[in-house]
Write a protein that binds this DNA or RNA. Structure first.
Lengths: 183, 183
DNA sequence: ACCTGAACACCGTTCAAGT
DNA sequence: ACCTGAACACCGTTCAAGT
């Protein structure tokens, strides 16, 4: 959980409470969780929530940032075997994680609107890792040229958002998509 | 536009007006279009809308039924060339159509809850066609066994819902998914 | 049988007033 | 600087009263 130095102590504490309350309620209700209820549970006025997070997406980005960072760290920690298999395995982990954590896929699709520009958004973190994996696999001739990092992330996000709360299906459909339909 | 014989003439007319208003507003605002506003534009009370369509999904199903039926008709009208290419081409058309018509992908993912059971829902119409195409391609050995009609529709819907209003991207990502990542 | 309008319990956003 | 509570303009759902 990061600090925002420029805030007064009470502002700092409110911000942390809002993020904690949002984490609980987004996990329960998904990306559409009531902002009113989040403010209520955090013990702040609704106007305070809006000052700290000008848009719903800005709040969601902060809620999910730590988890996504962990996911990104897992990629580099993997052994360097077949680069196409490595790419596929990490994309599968991302898809399962995203399908499992309610609201995350929707947040990734909606983009980081309203996030303060110096902060790295979740999509950018994922894209950075994925670009590296795609480059390695590509220069090893292990994937074809049409498979870009951007489209692969779009594909994974699409499958996750359509299969929120159903990780086995999300994983199976992603595998199908990475494999294609030819025999 | 189908008739519902069991309705009084005024009920019949109200139902048609509701569907017409819903078509306009869903095209403009997507699947989350305000039911209140739909009722207002149709010139009926909101309670009347709820009586005719107990859930939002039931209304969406009726709004999109004709278009989906046309899509299904196009499949059988195609020449019988390479069965895998035929399957891919139709799935691409479905994806582009779904990505282009706001609210349709969300309606397909949400399912037909609240629709009167004797009516065929959009998903069932699409699955029937797709099952035929998959069977033909499969028995010709043109696709692998893991590619089921259900998962392929899930895949197409996922890509469409994540790329609503961006048909070129939806088409490109679907092609990537049908091709896979291998060189 | 079917419709209407009002009632109920919610929303998100903004703004004046406070400390 | 930051917070609060109230105000505003919306929602979806349900129900008593009408024709």
């Amino acid at each position: 959980m990061e600090r925002v130095k420029s805030l007064r102590v009470d502002g700092q504490r409110n911000r942390e409470r809002i993020v904690a309350a949002a984490s609980e309620l987004v996990a329960r209700d998904g990306a559409q969780a009531s902002l009113e209820e989040i403010a209520r549970r955090a013990g702040v006025g609704s106007a305070t929530l809006h000052r700290h997070f000008p848009t719903r997406q800005a709040l969601l980005e902060v809620v999910f940032r730590d988890g996504v960072a962990q996911l990104c760290a897992m990629a580099s920690a993997q052994p360097g075997r077949n680069p196409a298999a490595e790419l596929a395995a990490w994309l599968e982990e991302v898809t399962v994680y995203t399908a499992t954590h309610r609201g995350l896929a929707a947040a990734l699709l909606a983009g980081p609107e309203g996030l303060s520009p110096e902060e790295l958004c979740c999509t950018d973190m994922l894209l950075e890792v994925l670009t590296g994996l795609v480059a390695r696999a590509s220069s090893a001739g292990a994937i074809h040229a049409g498979a870009t990092a951007e489209d692969l992330l779009r594909l994974a996000n699409a499958i996750a958002v359509a299969n929120e709360q159903d990780a086995p299906t999300a994983r199976r459909v992603l595998r199908l998509a990475l494999l294609g339909i030819r025999p």
